[in-house]
Design a protein around this nucleic acid. Structure first.
Lengths: 327, 327
DNA sequence: TTCAAAATTGCATACGTATGCAAATTCCTA
DNA sequence: TAGGAATTTGCATACGTATGCAATTTTGAA
């Protein structure tokens, strides 16, 4: 950085003023074709890049978007992250990554977002939501909760049609002739868990069926334990709906290890459609998130000033059922 | 950002000069306890955060580290990413994420790294290495290749003891009584592939054994196809070593689908020890990367001026064998 | 060819912070 | 209490770029 090439040096070499150099690199500014060529040639020769710090400072506008996640619990997120970075890059934004579950660092993370005056924040981590949301509101930084809904924060949410998807799954299992049902859930309070539980149990009730509800936390391990316990306590049902694919794998493996066959004895459905679900070891029926559309909408909400300063709303997008071997 | 609170406003409220405010937020600067308190109080009241753009500009030093990855092919990387962000945050750095496999955006990605004059770059993506490495050298930006070695770039590499680990795996399989061997590889040219292949085949040769080598690309799908083909062409061996866990899963599933039992008929070993390997559906024997130490060393190399400007070296760290159900 | 309109250019300044320097204050010792 | 050393403070400036304004050049029509 000490040997930084500046617009002044480019200007000198090109025989123009610093302003002209700046205008060449500022879209929407007017420069003659002749100077543009001279400047670009000199710039290439020197390896000039506009200094983003000076630029953001003078424009009073950041080109960074904060991406807040916590750990790597679910392979579903890396896909979304990649989509975000690609799409944002096309719009000229870069991504500031916040990814830790160290509570002591959380304040530092928020500081970073504020120090860089990020143009917006995407939150993929529920636990950070409350503290962070407050700060974001205070500093009027546009924010979107991705795949979660946290009532009362006033932030925009972009989520999947969890409830109606869960209803669809219920109807599917009924149509397959199942008579008894289990729902294995996620962390208490998580909107994905709440909404999927609601849709599933209500739809079953509409058709005159009850539902066994088991607690979970979105992890494979807990899925496995739930699956094992269902068998050992004799509470196995005709159908199991797991709140995420990851938990479904655990349940499936617990069944397989104990000789319970899927789908012959039990039908199993997950949620997310992460890559592994199409692997032959699981071949899991599941509900696919409309990830690309969710990302696109999130970005739109963040960057449209109309939207981003409006009171937060919840946007539910429709995904698609993927029928595979477990039903 | 338009309603940015500046050091001047804090200074006015606290009744001191802007310089004093700056000194309170600059570590190593000398301020009296009295002014510090006044300033901190005023700062909190106004919600002041030093503007990182102005700061980086005047100090001519970035607090950003670029993290370059490509897609999400291997669940191994998210763990490393998280570790990087946490450790870097402790040192006062934030992470600029580059994550795309869109070739057209690659130049823009490099521009971003240069525009922000990142203090260093961690590269987790082999394909970007060549183009990017050249740029990084030209602009004297410290860089570390993580889990890959690309000869001739002059960049530091932090990697796992692939070769000796592969030898250890060969000896293990021999000790288990295997007589015929297969190696299923990764993308041609990838250092992890080359080194593991070399260690494995050489050690087998030392003991008088040959080895069938099958081409691969690090993906589950190709693992599966290789596994299937081995059976269908009658070239199944006593032991199979896959270049990554991900490929091992594919091979395993192909075997399972065709009634070939692991480990009774075939012993199977992977590499990486990602979380799934301990799941009961695979319970895969594998070699665990020393991820934490690899990350720590990478950061050390990046931030130590002595190291970062020295000619790049390859640093191999020792991991640990994880014996599970497939051997 | 001439002259007004349009386009382009350079000058000067501002963004918010860090820091060398000199002035002001505090501290310590005699 | 005096007076010199040490600490703290404010002033002024610089970092590299974008942009309003005025000066200059180019364009186009008569």
């Amino acid at each position: 950085m000490e040997n930084q090439v500046t617009a002044h040096e480019v200007a000198k070499l090109a025989g123009v003023s610093q302003s002209s150099v700046s205008r060449v690199f500022t879209k929407g500014a007017s420069v003659s074709e002749k100077t543009r060529e001279k400047v670009l040639k000199a710039a290439e020769q020197l390896g000039y890049r506009p200094n983003e710090y000076a630029r953001s400072l003078i424009k009073r506008k950041s080109s960074l978007i904060g991406l807040v996640m916590k750990g790597v619990s679910n392979p579903y997120y890396p896909h979304a992250v990649k989509k975000f970075t690609s799409e944002l890059k096309k719009l000229g934004y870069s991504v500031l990554l916040i990814d830790t579950d160290d509570v002591e660092l959380q304040m530092q993370d928020i500081d970073a977002l504020l120090s860089y005056h990020v143009a917006g924040v995407v939150i993929m981590d529920a636990t950070a939501s409350f503290q962070t949301a407050e700060m974001l509101r205070r500093f009027r930084i546009p924010a979107v909760l991705f795949n979660r809904v946290v009532p009362g924060t006033g932030l925009h949410s972009v989520s999947c049609e969890n409830e109606s998807a869960a209803r669809e799954i219920a109807r599917l299992l009924i149509a397959r002739g199942c008579k008894s049902f289990t729902y294995v859930g996620g962390r208490e309070g998580a909107s994905t868990h709440i909404e999927r539980l609601k849709g599933f149990t209500e739809e079953l009730e509409n058709h005159g069926f009850g539902c066994q509800v088991l607690p979970g936390d979105f992890t494979y391990g807990t899925g496995y334990r739930n699956g094992a316990e269902m068998i050992e306590s004799g509470r196995l049902t005709d159908a199991v709906f797991a709140v995420t694919d990851l938990m479904a794998y655990g349940i499936y493996d617990a069944f397989r290890d104990r000789g319970v066959r899927v789908p012959e004895q039990v039908k199993l459905v997950g949620f997310d459609d992460i890559e592994m679900s199409s692997w032959s070891s699981y071949n899991l029926s599941t509900y696919a998130h409309p990830v690309d559309r969710m990302v696109a909408l999130s970005i739109e909400l963040l960057l449209d000033p109309e939207q981003s300063h409006a009171e937060g709303e919840v946007h539910y997008l429709t995904g698609e059922m993927r029928l595979r071997g477990t039903t």
